[in-house]
Amino acid sequence: MSQEIKEREPMFSPKNMRLITNPFNKENPITVQVLGICSALAVTVKFEPAFMMALSVIAVAAIGNTIISVLRNTIPSRIRIIVQLVVVALLVILVDQILKAFSYDVSKQLSVFVGLIITNCILMGRYEAFAMQNKPWPSFLDGLGNGFGYGLILLLVAAFREIFSPSGSLTLPFFGTVKIVPQAFFDMGYVGNGMAILPPMALISVAIIIWIQRSRNEDLQEN
């Protein structure tokens, strides 16, 4: 028994911490692994729905990773993809039901994109690549990390788009709307960019983030 404890690594060993921090930069699910793009772009018109979406994905990624990892030794390999799909679908339905019950406005704004978390490749990708081979605790951290990495990009894009939109303000969850562009600017004739709220701007904002990230980190550049 005591031997087993010795072999076990501490809860927050450097290796485990990297599982959380790597997805923020070098292994970011969106800008580097190119996973989960669909929802990242579609829900970023405003900050608040993006925030709720990020929370939902973090929850589904972390809990799902843990469940798969706990079950990993029992899952028959022939139906493992189906089992993973069932677990994601279960969690996503729960998230959807909870949003509908307690955060109705946001659930209306997210509409079908909550359902599309099921096919968000981040989840299936992490379940298959990480949780099937690792213990529950690292899997949980990995899910959390990837969820955060995804959420970070989501929030960046959403903040960018909302600030430059004609309203010039930021709708923070729990705080209400904050005016970012001062009224004086509008009085002087500043007009927000109507483009920012239209779909193509999401793509261009992500491209800008990728540009910045890759020019700082040359390992990531493609040939």
Partner: peptide
């Protein structure tokens, strides 16, 4: 089972929102 329980227990809240 999990889904049915969740759906039944959350239904009143959802209907109320609507």
């Amino acid at each position: 089972v999990v889904l049915t329980v969740a759906s039944i227990s959350l239904k009143p809240f959802q209907d109320k929102n609507v």
